[in-house]
Design a protein around this nucleic acid. Structure first.
Lengths: 209, 209
DNA sequence: GTGAAATGATAGTCAAGACTATTGTTTTGG
DNA sequence: CCAAAACAATAGTCTTGACTATCATTTCAC
């Protein structure tokens, strides 16, 4: 098992200009992630591109993993807010399916909108730091889904529903990642099919009284 | 976009001892992958642990990515052979589900049996080289699944079936990866649930005449 | 306005890691 | 058994990249 090197921020921005520097570092890192990929990304590279110097970066981030972690968390936060903001009109299979499809499509959209969103999605598997960010986010999403389902049917076993929700979340994300990986496939069709599968699962869970 | 650095082997083993060296390099790389993770793995480290020297490694591999690629391909090959060896007794929903479950369970088993199998699975997302290996393997699996389905019902549209198969394969692998990522969840339950979802999908595809 | 805190730049250090020119040693075909 | 090929080691080179000690400048509190 690999050690976990990362920490939190080093210094909190207090003046306007540092706020800018902080954001610039993140934006530049995202840009570079898109251009050169995860493996070639380095702090020196980020600094050079941003017109900054290493100490400026290291004032705000204890090490390079912290930069990546923050980037990942930004995206995960955006995606989860989206997910948790949506509720099905009813619990009919069709409404559930529509809602899920909406979430999937919207998630793809916000990911595209964010610089290097697609790359960040893929890099989430590329480092222990980011893997942790990803799994926490998915757990949170599964928790939310579990409570949604159990609000509808309280007799269901908490742990079992959670396990299935967790699987569902993972499969949803797998479909989303496919959109970014496999450009030959029809995006709308892919998401629709995934939404269909997931909706059926949710309905089935609800019925297992 | 990142450049792709890797190439094929440099020298084919011709004597017994070189065969050993070759295998030793791969085995050591797998071991180290398990111990230190993907990011900290280096060629020098592999050599040291294997009791070899860098030139010995570079006789057989043009660069470090080639080592990883070979490791990934070994695992993918094993998994795909397994997958393509299985055929459902019948095309009833239950038989399909059983077959899928068998494949999932067996895949987890062979992955566990291989040194660093779990790590390799996760590292498949960690580098462009390995991402390519992974996607090729999944495409091949989806092709196989497509022909299996179309052998049963030739009226189905090839591309549509392929897209859905591809999604199915991805979801199956997502479930398998979860087994290695999320140890808190019940493995058998996870795989059973995934098999159920996938079987339903296959049945639905077959019925869309 | 001025001193202190905050911010950033100069100019590096240092370690690690990918990869090799060369030389020695083992194996094998004849 | 010997020459040539195959194999592996010696001993590096050279680049890159994470990270810092120190000094300069900007901003803010008062």
């Amino acid at each position: 098992m690999s050690a976990s090197p990362p920490l939190k921020k080093r210094s909190e921005p207090r003046q306007g200009r540092s706020e800018k520097t902080y954001d610039l570092i993140l934006a530049t890192a995202a840009e570079l992630l898109e251009e050169v990929g995860f493996e070639r990304l380095s702090t020196n590279m980020i600094c050079k591109r941003a017109g900054l110097t290493p100490p400026a970066l290291y004032r705000y981030f204890p090490n390079k993993y912290a930069v990546l972690k923050e980037l990942g968390e930004q995206l995960m936060r955006t995606q989860n807010e989206l997910f948790e903001g949506m509720e099905p009109r009813s619990f009919s299979k069709d409404d559930i399916e529509h809602t899920i499809l909406d979430v999937l499509v919207a998630t793809v959209a916000v990911t595209r909108a964010q610089t290097a969103g697609a790359w960040i999605m893929r890099s989430l598997h590329a480092s222990p730091v980011l893997a942790e960010v990803r799994i926490n986010s998915h757990r949170q999403a599964a928790q939310f889904l579990t409570s949604l389902i159990r609000a509808r049917n309280e007799t269901l076993d908490q742990d079992q529903v959670y396990a299935k929700s967790r699987l569902g979340v993972e499969l949803g994300y797998a479909a989303i990642e496919m959109v970014f990986d496999e450009t030959e496939l029809d995006e709308a069709e892919l998401l629709a099919e995934a939404a269909n599968m997931l909706a059926r699962t949710v309905v089935r869970i609800l019925q297992e009284a």
